[in-house]
Design a protein around this nucleic acid. Sequence first.
DNA 1: CCTTCATACGTAGCTACGCTACTTGTCGAA
DNA 2: TTCGACAAGTAGCGTAGCTACGTATGAAGG
Lengths: 113, 113
Amino acid sequence: MKAQELHGHLDALLLAVLEQGALHGYAIIEALRARSDGSLDLPTGTIYPALRRLERAGHVASTWSTVNGRERRTYELTDAGRRALAGERAGWHEFRVTVGRFLDPGSPPGTPA
Amino acid sequence: MKAQELHGHLDALLLAVLEQGALHGYAIIEALRARSDGSLDLPTGTIYPALRRLERAGHVASTWSTVNGRERRTYELTDAGRRALAGERAGWHEFRVTVGRFLDPGSPPGTPA
DNA sequence: CCTTCATACGTAGCTACGCTACTTGTCGAA
DNA sequence: TTCGACAAGTAGCGTAGCTACGTATGAAGG
């Protein structure tokens, strides 16, 4: 799918992926691709800046490690990040219902009961 | 809701509103507000440029009329617009499923059956 | 009469944010 | 030794919605 439509929801996706355990950037990209059956194939230029944004916001924390001579920055959800994720989930739900009222089939204009 | 999350979905909303009949810009804003129970209260600076974009793209057509001394530009879906709306609906569905896999409750990681 | 508010259109400039394209570097395989 | 997967990152661009204006009419209220 056209990924630009993610606008505003990327942070939530990243937090959701990290909810299941700490990962490094590259692995996050792979996790998104895997869990979406390839629909979400996000470039590094999207992920890395987003992760730094989340870190600045205090929603994730990172630690460096070296594995096989390769530098890895591993990201982990903070408590604030977990709270933020809950908020993002609520926001996503409202968004999905609101937009769905216009775009989902079944009950366009006047559907009282 | 924070309207910036609409990013990329606004066109679809406008087409969906016009699907039920031609409306002028101001009325479109009111229709969005009404059908979303007030969640979508979009400023004119968002709607008018968007409508012109849709017109340039050939998805809507506009006709001027004067009602009570007030100028009205009434927008109507074109056939291409109707096709575009169908595409937007499909895109919305895929988007909602993909993002939902991460943010909706119920089936986070490995849910085979 | 004059102000104010709802109606109705519109533009200029800002900002957020995801994307493209690029760089740096290690390691394993061909 | 060259190429591709792994791993991180930045600079600059484009899209698109938002803020804050500006214009104009008609109705309501003082």
